[in-house]
Amino acid sequence: MLCQECEEREASLHFTKIINGEKTEVHLCGVCAKDKGDYLPGGKSFSIHQLLSGLLDSGQGKQTKQEGTRQARQRRPELKCGTCGMTYRRFAEVGRFGCADCYEQFDEKLDPVFQRIHGSTQHTGKVPKRKGEDMHVYRELESLRQQMQQKIEEEEFEEAASLRDKIRGLEESLKEKGGGAS
């Protein structure tokens, strides 16, 4: 979303200001936020959620100036989850997804978010048994392929060949299962 002050740059600071019980939502870009020094972090008005939402939104601040101005003229339709109705903007504010499908719907913006929070974008842990039977095989395959590449580079061709056979075997078993199950 655009900065409410200059209406030109992407807003990167989002928070709720409360004055005399009146709530006002404030959305500013870094430049305008600096001008209005009182909004800058360090003030006590920032809650963890506000900080988190700043973090979440930073994923979209990387566009070029050109894109920024194009967007200013013609507002891009907002990212919205069709299943639960959550918008990306709301997600950035509250720091919570609405449903499992939000992950898919907001996908284009999530890599930098996860990278910042977790230093990673890809799950490598537990896979549920029922749902992920095949995933175990895919992961095994991935690891075998890497090993095979390694062996080829090291010119250990005999070992590479035996890894290749293993890979073929697994691929076959996947095919058979896919054919039988669907």
Partner: peptide, 26 residues
């Protein structure tokens, strides 16, 4: 998991309300 369909994505793992819990949820 044997009785419920849990939200899981191959890339992101177990899907959670807060992005700070996604993946393992652990």
């Amino acid at each position: 998991e044997s009785k419920l369909d849990l939200a899981f994505d191959e890339r992101r793992g177990y899907l959670t309300s807060c992005p700070t819990n996604v993946g393992t949820g652990l």
